[in-house]
Write a protein that binds this DNA or RNA. Structure first.
Length: 302
DNA sequence: AAGACGAAAGTGGTTGA
DNA sequence: TCAACAACTTTCGTCTT
C-alpha cells in the first residue's frame, strides 16, 4: 500500500472512492488508480479483534454507495395516517421488506462467491476432481455464505475446508496435507475451518474408509490391479474387525498395500509406500503388525 | 549396503474436567 | 484453561537379506 506521494514525498494522500483513485493532496498526482479493495486480509484471533476489524463484507465504496445510510421499510403495518392496512397489503409489504433486504446483501455475496469459485476451481483441478464434485463443493460454499460462516475467515481457507468435506463425502478423500499444499493454507487452519463449518451446517461426513486411498496409492506406485484388489479385500476384513477406528486411514491403507504387494510378488519397500502415502515407515510397520496379527496372515515370503 | 524391525522419546491435536 | 491421552513421527540401534 502506498503511503507517500512518490513525487513530492507528501504523506497527505486522499482516497477518492468515487473515481477509485488515490491522490496526493499536495501536488495533485494520482498515486494509484483503480483501487479495488483497501480492506486488509486480516485474521481475527479473538472476538475483540473481530469486532474491531470486521468490515461488513465488501469495502464501503462498492457496497454502500450511500455511505451506510441504507433505506429500510419499517415494521409497522400502518399507512401514512396510522390506519391499519389490509392483510393483502401487509403480505405485500412483507415481501417487499424481504427482497429489499436480500437485494442489499446480494452484491457482497456475489463478490465473495466469484472470488471463491475461481479459487475453488483452481484447487479442484489440481486435485483432479470431476465437475460433479466441484458443483457440490460450490453448493456447499453457497450455504456457508448464507449462514454467514465466512466472515472472519479467509475465503481460501473456507474453500479448502469445503473441498475437503466434499471429497470425503463423495468417497474421493484427499488428505489435509494435499489440500493444504495446493491451497496454500495451513493444515490446521483448514482442519479448524472444516470442523467449524461441518458443525454449523450439521454435515454428516462419514469416516474415511482406508480402501478409498488404495487406488491412488497403487497407481502412484505402479502396482497392478491385482494388488489393488487384494489390498481392498484385506481392508474389508480389517474394517470388520474394528482395526481401523481411531487410526489414520492413510496409514492403514499403506499397510494393506504393502502386504498386498508382497503377496502378489510385486514387492515395494516400506519407504516407497510410506512416501507415496504420506506416512512414515514406522506407521506402516505398526499397522502392518496389527493387520498380520488380527487377520492371522501367514506371509511366508516376506 | 540396504531394508526391515522395534524401542524410546518427541510432537501436535483432541478431550474432558 | 490445563493436563492427560492417543496417534503419529523422529531417531537410533540391531538384525536380516
Amino acid at each position: 500500500m502506498v503511503d507517500k506521494c512518490p513525487d513530492c514525498k507528501s504523506d497527505k494522500l486522499v482516497k477518492d472512492y468515487e473515481k477509485g483513485e488515490i491522490m496526493c493532496k499536495n501536488c495533485g498526482l494520482i498515486v494509484a488508480d483503480n483501487v479495488v479493495d483497501t480492506g486488509p486480509e486480516w485474521r481475527a484471533f479473538d472476538s475483540e479483534q473481530r469486532d474491531k476489524r470486521a468490515r461488513g463484507g465488501a469495502p464501503i465504496k462498492y457496497m454502500r454507495p450511500n455511505k451506510g445510510l441504507v433505506t429500510e421499510i419499517d415494521q409497522y403495518n400502518r399507512d401514512i395516517r396510522g390506519a391499519k392496512i389490509s392483510s393483502k397489503k401487509q403480505a405485500q409489504l412483507y415481501r417487499m421488506r424481504k427482497w429489499h433486504k436480500r437485494a442489499s446483501i446480494a452484491s457482497s455475496m456475489e463478490r465473495n462467491l466469484s472470488i471463491a469459485l475461481s479459487e475453488l476451481d483452481r484447487v479442484a483441478s489440481y486435485l483432479g476432481l470431476p465437475d460433479a464434485v466441484r458443483e457440490s463443493a460450490a453448493l456447499l460454499y453457497r450455504k456457508c455464505i448464507e449462514k454467514g460462516l465466512i466472515r472472519g475467515r479467509l475465503i481460501e481457507s473456507v474453500v479448502a475446508a469445503v473441498l475437503y468435506a466434499i471429497c470425503r463425502e463423495t468417497g474421493k478423500p484427499r488428505t489435509l496435507d494435499e489440500i493444504a499444499d495446493l491451497a496454500g493454507i495451513e493444515k490446521k487452519e483448514i482442519g479448524r475451518t472444516y470442523r467449524f463449518i461441518s458443525h454449523e451446517l450439521g454435515l454428516r461426513v462419514p469416516l474415511t474408509d482406508p480402501s478409498q486411498y488404495v487406488p491412488r496409492l497403487t497407481a502412484a506406485l505402479k502396482l497392478s490391479g491385482q494388488v489393488q484388489e487384494k489390498a481392498i479385500e484385506l481392508l474389508k476384513k480389517a474394517v470388520s474387525k474394528g482395526l481401523v477406528s481411531g487410526r489414520g486411514p492413510t496409514g492403514v491403507a499403506a499397510a494393506a498395500v504393502y502386504i498386498a504387494s508382497a503377496l502378489a510378488g510385486e514387492r515395494k519397500t516400506q519407504k516407497e509406500i510410506a512416501d507415496a502415502a504420506g506416512v512414515t515407515e514406522v506407521t506402516i510397520r505398526n499397522r502392518y503388525r496389527e493387520l498380520k496379527r488380527e487377520l492371522g496372515l501367514k506371509i511366508a515370503d516376506l
